[in-house]
Design a protein around this nucleic acid. Sequence first.
DNA 1: CCAACCATGTAAGCTGTTACATGATTGA
DNA 2: TCAATCATGTAACAGCTTACATGGTTGG
Lengths: 174, 174
Amino acid sequence: MTPLSYALLGLVRQLPRSGYALRKVFETTPLGGYSSSPGSIYPALKALEKAGLLETRGSASHGKGLYHLTPGGERALNDWLGAPIGDLGEAMLRFAFLPDDDAHAIHSFLDRFEQAASAQAQGLGAFLAGDGSDGMSMKARLAVEHGRHGLQASVDWARWARRQFGEADRGGSG
Amino acid sequence: MTPLSYALLGLVRQLPRSGYALRKVFETTPLGGYSSSPGSIYPALKALEKAGLLETRGSASHGKGLYHLTPGGERALNDWLGAPIGDLGEAMLRFAFLPDDDAHAIHSFLDRFEQAASAQAQGLGAFLAGDGSDGMSMKARLAVEHGRHGLQASVDWARWARRQFGEADRGGSG
DNA sequence: CCAACCATGTAAGCTGTTACATGATTGA
DNA sequence: TCAATCATGTAACAGCTTACATGGTTGG
């Protein structure tokens, strides 16, 4: 179960699709960072079908059928969505597939994401302040600072995102 | 030639080292994001030696020798350092290994890095503003915004880094 | 008929990960 | 001697990329 597999499960839960339609999503959105080309997507779909997490039902206009989530797939997706945050990139993918109606899950995620990003940023700060970075060139230090700034941007994003939901909850369009 | 290969060449140019010493660098610095464990580093070193980019000379206190850069390795490293910027993560790795004394190369790099990050940020902005993002959930949009914020942080970092070099050039410690 | 695109699939090759296998040396 | 650490290596496996293969359909 790679990030790509979960992205496929998440997309299929949103809307049952054909393999081709799924490929198009990766080709036309920033989700493309998780894959590209048939060589990864079709085998991944086959594996998910074999594992009983997806099944093909109904039939598109001409070709085969559309992939649907099985109960097992639903479970696997939910387990993944609820798992503790490790890699921040994977966490962001998860965020995009959190259920729309579960405000608690969303806020809980943002809290944990901010904590994880903050901890990693502090880790880099400690590295730069400590003796591990002795003898490093100025450029190498600046490269580490780049990572730190990026993590700080994640922290700031989490706070900003919480505000967005707050505004949406209060009825943004009025 | 993967990013890991170039990281090894860059480290060896800084200071000839044994395979074990190189591994330790990856284990004890943020460079660890590019590898981990002997399973990738030792084979990569063997491949670089076979390709004539590294050679083992001299001898450490007990074990084998130390890896040194060959003229071919020097050339390969310089080619890589001067290549156009594509992936920003790889670019940052390159930045860390730019020659310390080449102020022109450093400023040129920061210019190009800022441009690349800015262009990518604008690409995401256009995606969010255009019809490609129609029908996306608010969370999916926010996830894209996260990417945009991170790229903006890269742009800001590049400007900040230029100032750091400006101060260093004027003699920062006085 | 030919070109182009829809739609799916497979095979070869590269990298990296995990986990295990050596041996040498150092300290209790 | 036992455990730990130094120092190197390998074998099995997973995943992705590139590139090619296969058919159907649409339009000139």
